[in-house]
């Protein structure tokens, strides 16, 4: 099989490759979970690129309704037009607003659909899409049309675990949990983003990064995206590798830590720890 593979830009573990290819082969949605910043959203972009399909992105918010992905009937405009005597009003189809899934279904070539952060929506959201994702079709009541996918799209769904998803929904998906990258993998990810990065700096920075992650009690452990931001800052500031060397994260708060520790409590925790350790050691 050709399909999806780790690339220079995106480091995918073998289990992720298998999961993506299974979902593509069986035309089932792939549900991807994992710590924030571990590359869930970017995965959809990479899959689209690998398969050579266009990507349709549907970013879910707490107020998003399933129906909005199919279509909406803009009754208000129609009422207004009818007040104004606009002839458009006779045809209800003029007031049907297509959603992302409709676009993907009607496209002349296969698409990749990203439903990002499905757990943000109400619990009903996934249930309301069950049938549509299963059959890849839906019915437009207002115009009595059935919209069926010309090509079943590859559907990638991400979740940050804010809500449990219904069993019936889960049964229809393949599932992949992105484990936090280990050090060698992280080295490759860093290399992918900053090919020219100084060896020493990368090594020292990664050591500090993993030490920071190991500090117990952090509210938000820094993840890949924080590491990448931090490295960029280190490069911009032109910090020499020595500035990080022998920097035990337990003793000193790392330079430019703002990119790694995003909330105040964590910074305080660090300061407290560093203080205690210096005193004790």
């Amino acid at each position: 099989m050709s399909g999806f593979k780790s690339t220079e830009r995106y480091i995918a573990s073998r289990d992720l490759e298998v999961a993506v290819n299974a979902a593509v082969a069986l035309q089932r949605p792939l549900l991807v979970k994992g710590e924030p910043g571990t590359g869930k959203t970017v995965l959809a972009h990479e899959v689209a690129a690998a398969l050579g399909h266009p990507l349709v992105e549907w970013h879910v918010k707490s107020t998003t309704k399933a129906q909005q992905g199919l279509y909406e009937y803009d009754a208000v405009s129609r009422l207004r037009d009818s007040q104004l005597g606009d002839p458009k009003v006779a045809d209800i189809a003029n007031y049907i607003v297509r959603g992302k899934l409709w676009d993907a279904f009607e496209a002349d070539r296969p698409q990749v659909v990203l439903i990002d952060e499905i757990d943000k929506a109400d619990i009903e959201f996934p249930n309301d899409l069950l049938l549509e994702l299963d059959r890849m079709q839906f019915f437009v009541y207002e115009t009595r049309q059935t919209i069926a996918a010309k090509h079943r799209p590859v559907v990638i769904i991400t979740s940050n675990n804010e809500k449990e998803l219904p069993d019936a929904f889960l049964r229809r998906c393949f599932f992949h949990y992105i484990r936090f990258p280990d050090r060698p993998t992280m080295e490759r990810i860093v290399e992918a983003h900053y090919p020219g990065l100084q060896r020493d700096l990368a090594r020292e920075a990664l050591t500090v990064f993993f030490q920071v992650r190991d500090v117990p009690g952090l509210r938000k452990k820094p993840a890949t995206s924080e590491l990448l931001d931090w490295l960029k800052l280190l490069m911009i500031e032109d910090l020499p590798a020595e500035a990080l060397r022998s920097q035990d994260a337990k003793l000193v708060i790392p330079p430019l830590h703002g990119a790694l520790l995003k909330n105040e409590q964590d910074v305080h925790l660090f300061e407290r720890l560093a203080f205690l350790n210096r005193r004790g050691g």
Partner: peptide
Amino acid sequence: AMRAGVADYSVEDFYYLSRSALVKDE
């Protein structure tokens, strides 16, 4: 998925495939 040849050549792939198909919660 096995039939479609997703996990052909290695036992590891079979492990990954069955995990992805059968487990839905980390």
